[in-house]
């Protein structure tokens, strides 16, 4: 049975909408950053959309995800308000964190987004906490930690694998293996080709899938999430993917041959393969996807216009949300 038969029309449309929204958001930021109106550092997720969209396709609003410094994709896939995200990245008072956090700290607990995280490897232990709370309460909540291949070398990740395995926590660790820990190649920074193999030593299943293929990710994630929800414990899901942009905007990328990206854009673009597959199979009409593309482009346009028009936070806001003010 093909996976398309297992995904509902609604899930398919949502998956495409998520991927397209992330792509538009990131490609637009790449342009806007050159206009120098966006403060701070930004790490773009373009190229990796199928991972966030495929995993979140099986998550409920009440489930939780932890994210990374490259967090826009996870935030969009989990349902964060796109305009609120854009305003946050522009440092405006209308942003999801009122301008206090920026790109690397976007969070929205109302939709189960624990937050982007400026510390590499910071997410997995948090998600063990989500799993522990779920187990204690018996409410079926699932936690997903997104992390990169670089973060899979942090002790926090390995400690979390152990903890989740011994307690059979309802969690999934999603390693987005884009081949680089910041500027350092995976072949240098770890001695296994498949990060998923690390699961073996901790006693949980480790699965590797093509992270550029929405269907492959969605299928594997659906199984891992169902397993977690049914009380059978954690899964390590490795998704091999490609980062279209540098580690951060402004990265000269001297450490890689940029033909890697050209080739990935030409032959492994998750949006292109998704469209081809669903239209060929007659599952979704190309016109529906075109209309969605136009709608999303307009949403991103509006989010930039509104962010630019929004006020910056007043300096008095600096000492709000803290319990002492000296």
């Amino acid at each position: 049975m093909t996976v398309t038969a297992e995904l509902t029309q609604e899930q398919l449309l949502r998956g495409y909408r998520t991927m397209r929204t992330i792509r538009e958001f990131e490609e637009r930021l790449h342009i806007e950053i050159a206009n120098a109106q966006i403060p701070g550092f930004v790490h773009l997720y373009a190229g990796e959309e199928a991972v966030a969209a495929g995993v979140c396709a099986s998550l409920a609003d009440t489930d939780w995800v932890s994210s990374t410094h490259r967090g826009h994709g996870h935030a969009i896939a989990k349902g964060c308000d796109v305009k609120g995200m854009m305003a946050e990245i522009y440092g405006r008072a209308t942003g999801l964190c009122k301008g206090k956090g920026g790109s690397m700290h976007i969070a929205d607990f109302r939709v189960g987004m624990l937050g982007a995280n400026g510390i590499v490897g910071g997410g997995p232990p948090l998600v063990c906490g989500v799993g522990l709370a779920s187990k204690v309460r018996g409410d079926g909540t699932v936690g997903v930690a997104f992390l990169g291949d670089g973060a899979s070398n942090q002790g926090t990740f390995l400690e979390s694998l152990n903890l989740s395995a011994i307690w059979k926590l309802p969690v999934v660790f999603v390693v987005e293996n884009n081949g680089y820990g910041e500027a350092t190649g995976q072949a240098y920074h770890q001695s296994v080709a498949d990060t998923a193999k690390r699961a073996d030593g901790f006693g949980l299943p480790g699965i590797t899938v093509d992270g550029n293929d929405f269907f492959a990710v969605a299928e594997a994630a659906a199984e891992a999430i169902a397993r977690a929800r049914d009380g059978h414990g954690p899964t390590l899901l490795e998704c091999k993917t490609t980062r279209f942009f540098g580690h951060f905007e402004g990265d000269t990328q001297t450490y890689r041959d940029l033909s890697e990206v050209t080739e990935a854009r030409a032959s492994r673009d998750c949006l292109v393969s998704f469209r081809a597959r669903v239209t060929r199979a007659g599952l979704i009409d190309a016109g529906v996807l075109d209309a969605m593309d136009a709608e999303i482009r307009q949403l991103i346009d509006e989010s930039v216009v509104e962010a630019l028009a929004a006020p910056f936070p007043d300096a008095s806001q600096l000492t709000t949300d803290v319990y002492i003010k000296y």
């Binding site: 403060p39 405006r92 964190c97 206090k100 920026g102 936070p313 600096l318 000492t319 803290v322």
Partner: peptide, 16 residues
């Protein structure tokens, strides 16, 4: 600096 984390938005950081 006041007893807060370092804020992101430029006007807040300038105040910090």
């Amino acid at each position: 600096a006041p007893d807060t984390p370092v804020p992101f938005s430029p006007p807040l950081e300038k105040a910090f």
